[in-house]
């Protein structure tokens, strides 16, 4: 599974507000989005993120993996993550 990191220039607030200083675009995250971005920021792998979500929420691994991948696709489209 590919892994991702948050670009160095992406500003992420504790409230889940993302600001891309290079383009002026901004985004808001929901609670789960905040957790995923927070984990990516701390260098967690995708496997670790899925594991954490299944531990913390009432969700099976397959669903969590699908949701995380959907979310990552969105993040990639907006250039909010970089492949490592």
């Amino acid at each position: 599974m590919e892994n991702y990191k948050i670009p160095d220039n992406l500003a992420v607030s504790e409230e889940g507000f993302l600001f891309l200083p290079a383009t002026g675009e901004s985004f808001t995250l929901n609670e789960i989005g905040k957790i995923v971005i927070g984990l990516l920021k701390n260098g967690s792998s995708i496997e670790e993120i899925i594991e954490r979500l299944t531990e913390e929420f009432d969700v099976d691994e397959h669903t969590a993996e699908k949701d995380v991948n959907d979310f990552l696709t969105q993040l990639k489209n907006f250039r909010l993550v970089e492949e490592i």
Binding site: N9, P21, A22, T23, G24, E25
Partner: peptide
């Protein structure tokens, strides 16, 4: 450098943000 955040129907930026590009 600035990115317009709100553009009127006349194409004028009525809100914008300084950017790092």
């Amino acid at each position: 450098a600035m990115k317009k955040l709100y553009i009127t129907d006349k194409g004028k930026g009525w809100a914008g943000v300084t950017i790092d590009e």
